[in-house]
Amino acid sequence: MPHHRPPPLHLLPALDAAARWQSFAKAAQELHVTAPAISQQIRQLEDWLGVPLFHRLTRQVRLTEAGVQFAALAREVLQRYQEGHAEWLWAHARPRLRLSAAPLVGHELLLPALGEFQAQHPGLDLSLDLDLALADFDAGQVDAAIRFGAGRWRGLTAWPLIDCLGTVAGHPRVLQAHPVRGVADLRHHTLIHFRKGVNDWDLVARALGVEALPHQGNLYLDSELSAMRAAEQGLGLVICILPACQRWLDEGLLQAVAPPMPLGRGYHFVFKAQHPRSDLLKTLHGWLLGQMQRWAQGRPHPRDNATHELV
């Protein structure tokens, strides 16, 4: 017999996770419990409400009509609880912003300048998450992120930080063995990729006014930092995103074979519009904007030491 009182709140996370994954096993992984524990909590919830919430299939579960309605309510309750908890923390605890960024940006820009941020903002703690995976804003993992792209991410606000240029570069030893004096010479080289599902070499081809780039092969890696290190080992040519990768050119670790070219991409400061402390986000964005501008200034032209000509 169904209860007329609402079910216990501790049962809602299991429903929410199972509804999103359509799997008790995956919900269990997310919540760090066992699949039988998820199944038991869902059964308790169904007994409390007096209706089945899931169709149990062979390899997955699917919400019933009643389950769809109650799962939406559970998501709304949990989301508001997370937001309310965040608002309470901002009001009663020492302010802390959690910033997500790719490893390259973190190591080349953020960590060297972190002492300056702490000196300028002694009352604000900054937590860095240097991870390859995109941070989950809905789960409350981060307050803001630095992302590379065209500035459009669904459900998020993106403030520009810097428009990036790109150049093609390789290890001097590799370029000495196979000089690049034109697009056709790329047929002797491996092209290194660093973004899953995105071919940034198409951007280079468009910037050079050609339909496609000839090449000997492809090497696919998981990040800009991995790509730069692979090029440093002579494993292929890489797109140097400037100014992020300028150090490799300055120190002679890599050599540019093309002038800087616009890619139509840049770094952006990304966050959810309804953040409870937008004033602190503006503070962090302003500091990052200054760092990016300083990062881009006073650098030698990538072609200053180049001996090759990709045209």
Rank of each mutant, 00 (worst) to 15 (best):
V33L: 11
L78T: 00
E46K: 01
G115N: 08
T64I: 04
F137C: 11
L132H: 01
L53C: 02
Q60F: 07
S100M: 04
R62S: 15
E65F: 07
G50K: 00
L130S: 00
R80V: 02
L49C: 10
Y81K: 10
L130K: 00
I38M: 08
H107Y: 08
A66K: 12
Y81S: 10
V33P: 07
A133M: 14
S39W: 05
Q44G: 08
P112Y: 00
Q69D: 10
F54Y: 09
E83W: 00
E83R: 09
D47H: 08
A133I: 06
A102K: 02
L57V: 01
E87T: 13
F117P: 01
P52F: 01
L128A: 06
A133W: 06
L130E: 09
A74P: 00
A35L: 01
G84D: 08
F54K: 03
S39Q: 15
L134H: 14
A71F: 01
H121I: 10
G140V: 05
Q41Y: 02
L104T: 11
A74T: 11
R96Y: 03
Q120R: 14
R56E: 12
I38T: 08
I38Y: 07
A113Q: 11
F54N: 12
V77H: 09
L126R: 10
F117T: 05
A74V: 05
L114M: 14
W90R: 02
Q82L: 15
S127T: 11
A102N: 11
S100Q: 13
L109F: 05
D125N: 14
P112H: 04
G140T: 02
Q41R: 15
G50N: 00
L104N: 09
A102M: 13
E87Q: 15
R80H: 13
L110R: 06
R75G: 06
L130V: 04
P95Q: 07
T34Y: 03
Y81H: 10
Q60T: 14
L132Q: 01
A119L: 11
A66R: 11
S100C: 07
F54A: 07
Q40G: 04
A71K: 09
L73M: 10
W90H: 09
L45T: 04
D131L: 03
Q41L: 06
L124I: 14
T58W: 08
V33M: 15
D138R: 15
L104M: 14
A93I: 04
E116K: 10
P112W: 03
L124K: 13
S100I: 00
L49M: 11
S127A: 11
L110A: 01
L130G: 03
R75F: 09
L99P: 05
R96D: 01
V68L: 14
E65T: 12
A135Y: 00
I42F: 01
E65L: 13
T64P: 12
R98V: 15
L132K: 03
